[in-house]
């Protein structure tokens, strides 16, 4: 049987360095995210969250829109956590586990590419896709803000809060990737991230501060409160948190901005690196 033989001469090929490979793979992974059904679904969810919040704020504008700062604190502070956690779960939940479960990993791992390249590229792609969702929510927020206060009055705290939100996103994604590397089944990563970040850590935080009665600096939700906190006068701008008396006479801890950032970055580093460590040792068997 006559078959076309390949007439293209083989020139000597040089495999790109790992950094260019990370950027290339990130681009391909990001494109997969952008055209996934999941991306569309999340787009719908974020818009829905924005619409619901807009409606609630509009209805209770007497209380919630009393001044610029409290508007942003209430709107952004109630919605952005959910946007971040859902994005991380949607984009990161099966980022690693899916490569095993769907057997797509066997396609990538046959390439001259480090395992860390795959991990880092997938992380950056998930991070960028999630950031797009946070920015979409920001657009909805700013639209509302412009409606109530006119265009020129965006508080500078918003920029700081956005930075904190992005740091929080990195921390949540780090944990998501850790779970995704830990279990070869995608569902575990989804469920564990969602449970922990939607209420698990909050409960843990109350237990630590309420029962053990120490500052719950080791719990990520403690740091998370700085994202909405920067808009309120009770904010502690220093590094350390403050202690105050709660309504029932219990001790209340509030994280300082510096402390919040450090906790988030530490969570990101520890979880993301631990996930990488696991992935490096995981067998495609």
């Amino acid at each position: 049987m006559a078959t076309p033989t390949v007439a293209i001469p083989a020139t000597h090929r040089i495999v790109p360095d790992s950094l260019p490979q990370v950027l290339k793979l990130t681009r391909y992974q990001l494109r997969e995210y952008l055209r996934s059904r999941r991306f569309l679904a999340l787009l719908g969810i974020v818009v829905t969250i924005g619409v619901i919040l807009s409606a609630v704020v509009g209805h209770f504008r007497g209380v919630l829109v009393s001044d610029n700062l409290s508007f942003y604190g209430n709107f952004w502070g109630s919605g952005v956590y959910l946007v971040i956690v859902l994005s991380a779960v949607f984009f990161g939940g099966d980022a690693i586990a899916g490569e095993f479960q769907n057997k797509t990993g066997y396609f990538l791992m046959g390439l001259p590419i480090r395992r860390s390249t795959v991990y880092v590229a997938k992380f950056i792609a998930a991070f960028l896709a999630s950031t797009a969702m946070v920015l979409l929510f920001l657009v909805i927020l700013v639209g509302n803000g412009a409606f109530y206060f006119g265009g020129g009055l965006f508080p500078w705290q918003l920029a700081l809060s956005l930075v904190l939100a992005i740091a929080y996103l990195a921390a949540v994604l780090g944990a998501t990737f850790l779970f995704s590397s830990l279990f070869k089944t995608s569902a575990y990563g989804f469920v564990l991230t969602a449970i922990l970040f939607l209420f698990g850590f909050s409960i843990l935080e109350s237990l630590v501060s309420g029962l053990i009665k120490i500052e719950p600096w080791m719990v990520i939700s403690y740091a998370q409160s700085t994202i909405g906190g920067v808009f309120f006068s009770t904010t502690n701008w220093g590094f350390h948190g403050t202690i105050s008396a709660g309504v029932f006479g219990n001790t209340m801890y509030t994280a300082g901005i510096g402390e919040g950032i450090v906790i988030m970055v530490a969570y990101f580093l520890v979880t993301a690196l631990l996930g990488l460590f696991l992935f490096e040792r995981e067998e495609f068997s």
Binding site: R13, K103, T104, G105, Y106, G110, L111, P112, R114
Partner: peptide
């Protein structure tokens, strides 16, 4: 990375 540079690999019918 270097070892697989000049190899073509098909294992386990990847997706």
């Amino acid at each position: 990375k270097r070892a697989l540079a000049d190899a073509g690999v098909l294992i386990e019918s990847p997706e």
